[in-house]
Design a protein around this nucleic acid. Sequence first.
DNA 1: AACATATTTGAAATCGTTTTCAGAATAAGT
DNA 2: ACTTATTCTGAAAACGATTTCAAATATGTT
Lengths: 339, 339
Amino acid sequence: MAKETKVTIQDIAREAQVSPSTVSRVLSGNAPVVAAKREAVLTAIEALDYRPNVFAQSLASGQSLTIGVLTQRFGNPFYDGILSGILQALEPTPYSPIFGDGRWQTAVEKRALQTLLDRQVDGLIVVGGLSPEAEMLAYAQQVPLIVAAREIPGMSSQCLTIDNKKAAYEATRYLLEMGHQHIAHVTASIYYHGPITDVYQRYQGYVQALTEAGIQPDPQLLAEGDLSQQSGLMAVEKLVGRERPFTAIFAANDQMAVGVRLGLYRRGLRVPEDVSLIGFDDDHNTAYLTPPLTTVRQPAIELGQAAAEALIDLINGRQHTFDTFQASLIIRESVARRR
Amino acid sequence: MAKETKVTIQDIAREAQVSPSTVSRVLSGNAPVVAAKREAVLTAIEALDYRPNVFAQSLASGQSLTIGVLTQRFGNPFYDGILSGILQALEPTPYSPIFGDGRWQTAVEKRALQTLLDRQVDGLIVVGGLSPEAEMLAYAQQVPLIVAAREIPGMSSQCLTIDNKKAAYEATRYLLEMGHQHIAHVTASIYYHGPITDVYQRYQGYVQALTEAGIQPDPQLLAEGDLSQQSGLMAVEKLVGRERPFTAIFAANDQMAVGVRLGLYRRGLRVPEDVSLIGFDDDHNTAYLTPPLTTVRQPAIELGQAAAEALIDLINGRQHTFDTFQASLIIRESVARRR
DNA sequence: AACATATTTGAAATCGTTTTCAGAATAAGT
DNA sequence: ACTTATTCTGAAAACGATTTCAAATATGTT
């Protein structure tokens, strides 16, 4: 199948009348070469259309120029945004990303991680994930590691997160300011998903805002889903079934918010006239719901880029400090002032 | 940073009292080894927790056990579905995927492809893309290549596509059967996006259904977008601005359909009471629009899986025939019978 | 001009496997 | 028991770079 007449560094050396070592030096640039020879080498490379063999390079140098990215469940908009950012940030660098998918299953995640490690990635970015903290710390010993969208105690300098509690607090405050008193919250079960701390933090933000406003959080106004649209739909059923009046719903992510929106439609409840709705994530399509969804924007792409840049700095032993990432409330049309 | 005391094949050889060659043989299994020694090797591997160095393997064998995947614009739900399928299908194999993103820009795509090739992928899956057909054919000479979601003349046996024309035909027929006569179509500009043949085929299917029903396709009922939600929104503006009455809209993809849906909402047009709407792709969230969108489901994940399997067969010189992929109409609630 | 020092260079070792080749061990055939 | 096949096996040569080391050349000082 492959036809390629392989051009090796030897060929270049011969063509340019120098030794292979010299060719290697001009290639890597980590040792000086006199201008004339450098020129000769460069033209030879050009002439023969030489492309170094990555494996030989990696074997000899111990660097793979590859970075591993572990994600969860390809297709989740927030995570995909992060991946997209990573891809973009890596493009101008010599590093190529290689992906694994943990699918929110500890065993799968572990295998995927091992595969990545076996490929001797120079660094690893783990996006979310369920691996026990101890394991993560162990990995961090083996390889430069950045964790995105998850906070691991003991390696916080390598974790990029968004202040979920604060963002949820502000979202809830906004509802309060709009005159809502009975605010339901759709969250995700901690038992089902493992400790998805960001979802829990959002819950905490919600509670805090309520409490500060002198409102006692009502467990009857809490519904648990699993982050899917379907579960948002069912959450509405639970909520209205309980016959506790509410005028607003804060969903812990946009996917559930979308389900909630449909659930309300099914029940003949108008948004925002009867019930106000607020989501979290700013998924692509969320701006095109009817009505456009008020939500909390998470800077996913920026987060991905920052993660990639931080990792490269880490690999090269450079010091890196993160920008902190702030989520911001995107006010659209799904929240109305309570009359 | 990395601490690892490298265990090499030599260590195993010493431990098991055999030669490295023998160890290699039991590892690869492509030469017989007597049971006793095989056992010894296996236990040695176990004991020392040996993991072969991929680069040395690749260098020596000429196989990278890596397959390149070129996608366009990470974050597009249909493409992401394909990627997800590829990832799944590759998981049980020794191959790992490495990704590149062409971003729907010819130059970027070319560079991404070159990067993939430089990494000596054993095979390549190109999802969509803009590369001229001649270039694709050239790549196909260099490396086993599968193209998903695009048809390249001259290598159709390596292309997996869905019969877009037929699917669009059926979608349009469905609208006709529901009594609609004035059916608008939101398509994508061929000039902007290059020859996205699948979108063009959808247009053809639309025309065919209309013509067969004795209806002359009206250019005033055609609006061009760029596949984005935003462009769907604007398409509605164009359409109503032309003051040509219509009772149904067929959008060439779900993202535009979502935009269309919002556009109609803005105009105070109800779906489906005033205008029926049908999309194409069956994006995740499309089932949770209000009302749930009737659309055409493309089996993205299955397509991705099939692509990966086909590629592996191709790499190993096995013959492979594809299942054909049929899109199917998903009837939900955005289409009503014309009264 | 002579010496010390700094800069460039090439030869050769190395990275950790696979694979070829030929010899050793075993099995089979008469 | 003696060839003749047939399995197995190890030594050594790839694979295609990088990197160490020491030699060669250039530069600077006195």
